[in-house]
Amino acid sequence: MNDQIITVGIDIGSITAKAAVLNGGSIIGSRVQFTGYNAKKAGRDVLDALLADLGIEADRITAIVSTGYGRNNIDFADKAVTEITCHGAGAHFVNPEIRFVIDVGGQDSKVIRLDENGKVTDFAMNDKCAAGTGRFLEVMARALEVDLDEFGSLYARSDHPARISSICTVFAESEVISLISKGESRENIVAGIQESVASRISAMARRVGVAPPVMMTGGVAKNIGAVEALRKKLETDIEVSEYAQVNGAIGAAILARRLVM
């Protein structure tokens, strides 16, 4: 696939904007930065910065596909495609064996079932509530004064995960605060939080029907505690792509390639 065709995927999420560049069907670079207020500007900026990193002139790009909540704001893209299709395409590109994708981003989580060609056969999204998303973990990390990156190692050290029963982010935060005041260990609270996220996602995944092999994508996949809790809950192995956070952007770049091939 060394055809030197350069395509770009831009994924504008609720918290971060991602860009990925493909050259001849290989990933040559990706970048993540905060979305902020202006989705279009975020898309432009993340792409410009990535192109500068890679030393590629903008006029060498053959096609751009945008995705994510801000997909329709990226007016310099050739096409806007939903993150469902893009995450499916991205996961299939990274590992064609994958039949089930769990994507947990900043503001929503979704599960996607794929066929052997990477085509989406069914999907489900949570869209009524932020519990079970990256935002939920951020709020909890703040309440616990823990860096999000530490969540994983804290989970591993927990001996008895606390029970977080509330399904609302705000009420769950008060629950966490009351656990803190009762002197519960940070490890056990963090583990409880991860398990509550895993419970919500596994219910949605089971509704669609989990079909291994499973891949987890999105920013939350970087959190090894959340992945571990989900592994336990779903009783199945979960592959985490090294490109987890930019998986949607990679999928978009793949689809951009299909536009011109």
């Binding site: 909540y69 495609v81 939903t82 993150e83 469902i84 299709t85 929503d108 085509k119 989406v120 056969t121 069914d122 999907f123 489900a124 999204m125 869209d127 009524k128």
Partner: peptide, 27 residues
């Protein structure tokens, strides 16, 4: 499946439903 309500607009989140419909049509 679109989660909403027949009269109470507070149960309708447009951008999420927009994405669901687009994704469904892509499928």
């Amino acid at each position: 499946i679109i989660e909403a309500d027949m009269v109470d607009e507070r149960q309708f989140s447009e951008s999420q439903i927009d994405t669901r419909i687009d994704a469904f049509m892509e499928t």
